[in-house]
């Protein structure tokens, strides 16, 4: 689930205010944006790229590797299915507040068509020096620079802070993978960790988790078997517990999901768990010194 400077990217919602602002930023980062999509605006040019009415139309003119969605929540399902059915291999769903049942339908259809989905409610992907797909400040050199530390984050703003800590420690990033803040996601923490573990350009992985869900616990078993060092921060440990209503959520998560449960699972798996993002530089220094390069 990474992106390279060679990947052909299509931007859905390219003519909107955010779509056009971030298309320019993505191009600044070296991203190969080859087409835009905006229903009813086929034939126009935006940010110097041709605009089509649908991904299906764009796909007739350009081989497409990645689509990134800047579309409103209730339009996201149709836009995502357009990309999936056009055979786009990777789909980055930035949109927040997409109805969950729409997300489930998109993910089921994507699975059957072999499309990898990142998000929804993700800030996107950055491979510094190569490409940026989404709404991360990949163009800000004090935060993102080429290097060998992979960062996985549910949140864009917190991910930015963590990328900054990596840079402050004198490292750069091999990749930033924003998996998204929604409960139901195309790419999980575990999927992203596997990707970075397999990535020869990554020496260490920083995982930024949050309370809620069980994705961090689900990744722990894999982390225990990794040779590359893993550093983790879990946000929200000071939050008062949410008052829940039914039993079904508890039946499904069976006592997992709290900050402490995530910290314990990852620490037991051998990850270095820091109390605050400011602990990341020191953790990186220790981990990268003590661990042999795989």
């Amino acid at each position: 689930m990474l992106v390279t400077g060679k990947d052909a990217v299509v931007v859905q919602g390219v003519t909107g205010r955010q779509g056009s602002f971030w298309t320019d930023r993505m191009i600044e980062c070296g991203t190969r944006v080859v087409a835009g999509v905006s229903p009813g605006k086929g034939g126009q040019v935006a940010s110097g790229i041709p605009v089509y009415g649908s991904v299906a139309d764009a796909a007739k003119e350009h081989p497409l590797d990645v689509s990134v969605l800047f579309v409103p929540p209730l339009a996201a399902r149709a836009a995502a299915l357009d990309a999936v059915h056009a055979g786009v291999g990777k789909l980055v769903m930035l949109t927040e507040h997409v109805p969950y049942q729409d997300v489930m339908e998109v993910l089921a259809e994507a699975r059957d068509h072999g499309t990898q989905v990142l998000g929804p409610n993700t800030a996107g992907l950055v491979v510094p020096g190569e490409a940026s797909v989404g709404i991360m400040p990949g163009h800000v050199g004090s935060i993102f620079r080429p290097g060998r530390v992979g960062v996985i984050s549910r949140s864009g703003s917190l991910g930015t802070l963590v990328a900054l800590q990596v840079a402050a420690a004198g490292h750069g990033q091999s990749a930033f993978v924003g998996i998204g803040g929604d409960p139901i996601l195309g790419t999980t923490t575990l999927d992203a960790i596997r990707t970075l573990d397999d990535d020869p350009r990554t020496d260490a992985v920083v995982v930024v988790g949050e309370i809620g869900g069980t994705m961090e616990e689900d990744a722990a078993e894999y982390v225990a078997g990794m040779a590359k060092p893993v550093i983790a921060f879990i946000a929200g440990r000071s939050a008062p517990p949410d008052r829940r209503m039914g039993h079904a959520g508890a039946i499904v998560t069976a006592g997992r999901g709290s900050g402490e449960s995530k910290v314990c699972a990852l620490a037991e798996a051998g990850a270095t768990v820091v109390d605050l993002p400011s602990g990341i530089p020191e953790a990186l220094r220790r981990s990268l010194r003590s661990s042999p390069r795989p």
């Binding site: 984050s153 949140s155 917190l158 802070l161 803040g181 946000a235 929200g236 000071s238 109390d275 605050l276």
Partner: peptide, 14 residues
Amino acid sequence: GAGLTMTTLDAVTH
């Protein structure tokens, strides 16, 4: 952002 806001509260508490 929810993630950064939670982290800021964690830091205040810390």
